[in-house]
């Protein structure tokens, strides 16, 4: 069968490609990114704390299991004991996990409260999900729209259908990036036009659903200028996998220039008023 052998060939090619590219790849990403905001760092820490607690409990539980599997087996002639209850240990292993959980809940609560603190922002951006693209609107203090544009996937069809080689940012590149200033508290208002989408930038530790008819809030304060990529994370139909998010964080002055250029006036009063919010 023609198609089968084509698949096989493809599979073989893929394996070969995998093996060949492996050493080139700088660092294999396998953990939650530390990110570039205070919140993202805290979330990362939280993640690591819980992870290590689980590892520790795992070592104890699986250790006991393994010891028992090795030492208490019939084939080495171990006779079964008959004990089958102990209220004392039951209470013990109810209470101890409870304390561990409380210990986890405290930092978790602290971080959550901070994430929910959307007030005191320096500028507001509306993020609107569509099937299958994002729209960004820069709003002034009374939430009137100043600048807006759509942000579409920029990866070519040819790359997706394997006709050309895939570039480094395959599926994570857009035509118009969201541009925000560094060292600024940016508040996002998220909504959607059709179905539910979800706006996720891992490096900011922001993931918030964009729900048609409702507005969700999120905020970030990025110190490090750079380009940060994310994806839509709520199934939103056919091209859910093809509506990435790219945020370019630039120094404040650069942002002002960019913003003024967007407004089409390089020193319009209005433009400055908004841009100055960023200071």
């Amino acid at each position: 069968m023609m198609s089968k052998s084509r698949y096989l060939a493809q599979a073989a090619a893929a394996i070969a490609a995998m093996v060949m590219t492996m050493p080139v790849r700088a660092a294999l990403e396998y953990n939650m990114p530390v990110g570039v905001t205070d919140v993202s760092r805290q979330v990362h820490d939280l993640h690591m704390i819980i992870f290590w607690i689980c590892v520790a409990i795992g070592v104890v539980v699986f250790g006991a299991m393994l010891v028992s599997m090795i030492m208490h087996r019939k084939s080495i002639g171990h006779e079964p004991a008959t004990f089958h209850e102990s209220t004392k240990v039951e209470i013990l292993w109810t209470i101890v996990p409870l304390f561990i959980l409380v210990a986890m809940a405290i930092p978790a609560t602290r971080v959550l409260v901070e994430i929910y603190d959307t007030g005191g922002e320096d500028m507001v951006v509306e993020v609107r999900g569509y099937q299958w693209k994002w729209e960004y609107k820069y709003l002034d203090a009374s939430l009137n729209e100043q600048v807006s544009f759509f942000s579409n996937l920029a990866t070519s069809r040819a790359e997706i259908t394997n006709q050309t080689t895939k570039n480094e940012n395959y599926l994570l590149e857009v035509d118009n990036e969201l541009v925000i200033p560094a060292n600024t508290k940016v508040r996002f208002l998220l909504t959607a036009n059709d179905v539910i989408h979800s706006w996720w930038v891992p490096d900011f530790a922001i993931k918030k659903d964009a729900i048609p008819g409702f507005v969700n809030e999120a905020w970030t304060y990025v110190e490090e200028p750079g380009i940060y990529r994310g994806q839509c994370t709520e199934l939103c139909g056919k091209d859910h996998g093809f509506m990435p998010i790219v945020v370019r964080v630039v120094p404040k002055e650069e942002f002002q220039q960019w913003y003024a250029a967007q407004l089409g006036t390089d020193s319009g009063d209005e433009a400055l008023a908004v841009a100055q919010l960023a200071q």
Partner: peptide, 10 residues
């Protein structure tokens, strides 16, 4: 795990 403990496992 306690059920396994000191049992006679196969």
């Amino acid at each position: 795990v306690s059920t396994m403990w000191r049992g006679s496992m196969t």
